[in-house]
């Protein structure tokens, strides 16, 4: 069982690397990457510097300026779909009130020497940075589509709940190179936190749907 899983993972990822390497070595890309890597302070600890490492999806999205050709797009989406993990109890819908709080929090994860977040600062989903959600919050961004009445429009069937969870966990599984972060893949949000945001989106009692 274990062996077949590893084999599956290899099959899923192998074509991605092959695609990236089959491109003729672009001189400016190598130079630019070297210049970029060399531009950071030497006293950044290595666990900060690791944040500059790109996985295959990041590399391909950068290479194609977020508009990959169909074949690459499909490969990315397939590989990202395979990354999705679920809460141990299998329940994909949590507490919308917790989700509402997470949707508003935009702090967390800032590093560096000038203005880092204090240790232990809560990381949120920062959904309002890009999406309209509850009617009462007028300070919403427009990088992503409006999600007002998300559940009211789509219902809260098992299928919709799973789609919503999967999309927040790994947005690239549905739309390769989207602007939206892969919240679950990066452990930016825990599976439980994602279930709370799912509830905020689909629960009929949530202000996203009620107002």
């Amino acid at each position: 069982m274990k062996h077949s899983l590893i084999a599956l993972a290899l099959i899923t990822f192998a074509p991605l690397s092959a695609l990236a390497q089959s491109k003729p070595a672009d001189d400016i890309t190598a130079q630019a990457e070297q210049i970029f890597r060399g531009s950071f302070r030497e006293d950044n600890p290595s666990y900060w510097m690791q944040r500059l490492d790109q996985d295959e999806t990041m590399r391909l999205c950068s290479q194609f300026k977020d508009h990959p050709p169909t074949k690459v797009r499909q490969k990315i989406e397939k590989a990202e779909m395979a990354s999705i993990r679920y809460p141990v109890d299998g329940k994909l819908i949590g507490d919308w009130k917790e989700g509402e709080k997470l949707a508003a929090v935009g702090t967390g994860g800032h590093i560096g020497f000038i203005q880092p977040d204090p240790p232990g600062r809560v990381r949120g989903g920062n959904c309002y940075a890009c999406h309209q959600l509850a009617e009462k919050e007028v300070a919403y961004g427009t990088i992503g589509p409006s999600l007002q009445h998300f559940g009211k429009l789509r219902g809260n069937t098992e299928q919709i709940i799973k789609y919503t969870y999967d999309k927040i966990y790994n947005s690239n599984a549905f739309n390769a190179c989207t602007n939206m972060p892969r919240f679950g893949l990066h452990n930016w949000l825990t599976p439980e936190q994602i279930t709370h945001i799912v509830a905020f989106l689909v629960d009929p009692e949530s202000p996203v749907n009620k107002d």
Binding site: E33, F36, R51, D53, S62, K65, D66, N172, P181, W188
Partner: peptide
Amino acid sequence: YIFYRRSGPQD
């Protein structure tokens, strides 16, 4: 190149 380069915990 840097303008389009994606990395970090928020992609």
